[in-house]
Amino acid sequence: MNKEYLEQWLNVGECVNVQMPNEIFEDLSKGEFKSFNHKCFAYAYYYLICYIYRNALYGGETDQYSQHNIINVFTSDKSSVSYITKSGGLLDEIGYTRTTTDYPVTYYMDGGILEFGLIKELRKKIPNLEMNHSPRFCVKEPIKGMARFDGEDYTGTFYSFQNTHKIAVENFIKIISDKKLGHVGLYIYGYISMMCDKYNNKFQITNAQLGELVGCSERTMKKYTQRLEELNLIASTRVYYDKKQLDKVYSII
């Protein structure tokens, strides 16, 4: 999907950004994905459902945010990733998502705490409320947004930014809409963003080591980091020892 469509679809300028849990990289690495590409898809997909849920975008033209349309942002082959996104699929299994028909139509603050107004509550108040979507419409609730610690309420990334990393929606769109980056580029950008947060925006590592941590080859890492630099999303400098080029030092712009 192109940049202009995504900006309108995601209501950029009116919505708030979301945080991603740092543990997502370790958790996804334990999942039985069919490929590195699919692992990256799962990360990008989770970011998008967090953003849509947190901003209660379902409260507008609900059917715009069907699972079909969300997946189409990343791939035209829905069947290839259905094992990740379906009800009871991989993301449901590892505790990152829950398939539900009860979606947020609004959000508000109650005593300083973020709360969501859900469609089932609204239908109790307005029994004859017309649906603007198919009867089988369902969404993915981002569980880590709500709770991260043994199901304790209000401990998720919507409430606490501790041990999280942020990807501004403008950067999400810039990366996803770029044909050379896509969801793989987003995954790599997210990992570098997390590490830059930990190391005062100076993350020192070789491309070979970074590829090993992320789960791809040095060649793949070099290709994607170069493109991220070309788009002014990250920057890097070289570290020299005894006049030899060694590690790179990455920073988020």
Rank of each mutant, 00 (worst) to 15 (best):
R219Q: 02
I84T: 13
K78V: 05
Y154F: 15
S177C: 03
I234V: 11
K125A: 15
W9V: 10
I176F: 00
Q19L: 07
K166Q: 12
M146C: 03
V214I: 13
K39R: 05
T237F: 03
F161H: 11
L213D: 14
F158D: 07
I126E: 07
G215M: 06
G88I: 00
N132Y: 00
D247G: 04
T99D: 10
H68M: 11
S134D: 15
Y240V: 12
P104F: 05
I70Q: 09
S134L: 11
S134F: 13
F161N: 14
L246F: 10
D110Q: 15
T220C: 05
T99H: 03
Y103C: 12
I192K: 02
N37H: 07
V105N: 01
Q19K: 09
Y240W: 08
D242K: 01
K86G: 14
K174T: 15
L57D: 00
Y108R: 12
K86S: 15
D178N: 11
W9T: 06
K125T: 12
L114D: 12
D102H: 07
V249R: 05
Y5F: 15
V12I: 12
G145K: 01
L186N: 09
L210F: 07
V239K: 09
I126K: 05
H183S: 09
F203E: 05
S79D: 14
E218N: 01
K125S: 13
F25C: 06
E141N: 05
I84P: 14
Y240H: 12
F137C: 08
T206L: 00
V105H: 04
I84H: 14
Q19R: 10
K198S: 02
L228Q: 04
K86C: 15
S82W: 15
S76Y: 01
Y45A: 11
H38N: 14
H165R: 05
R123I: 04
R238W: 07
E170N: 10
V81W: 03
E23K: 14
N207F: 00
T106N: 10
K202A: 10
R219I: 07
V81A: 06
R123V: 08
I205H: 01
G185K: 10
H38G: 07
D153H: 10
M109V: 08
I205G: 07
T85Y: 11
F172G: 02
K3I: 05
R123N: 09
I52D: 00
Y51K: 04
T101M: 08
L231T: 11
Y45F: 14
L48T: 06
C40I: 07
E93Q: 07
V81P: 08
Y83Q: 11
G182S: 01
V105W: 00
T62K: 09
G88S: 08
I252T: 04
E170Q: 06
L114M: 15
F33L: 08
F41D: 07
C50S: 13
Y51A: 02
L90D: 00
Y51D: 01
E32L: 12
L233N: 12
D110L: 14
Y5E: 13
Y241N: 03
T220H: 03
Y51M: 00
F116T: 02
M131L: 14
D102N: 15
E212F: 06
I192F: 04
H68R: 13
V73G: 05
E23F: 12
H68Q: 15
T106R: 06
E152C: 09
S217Y: 02
F74S: 04
Y43E: 03
I192W: 01
C138G: 02
N2Q: 13
I175Y: 09
I234A: 04
E32M: 09
T155Y: 02
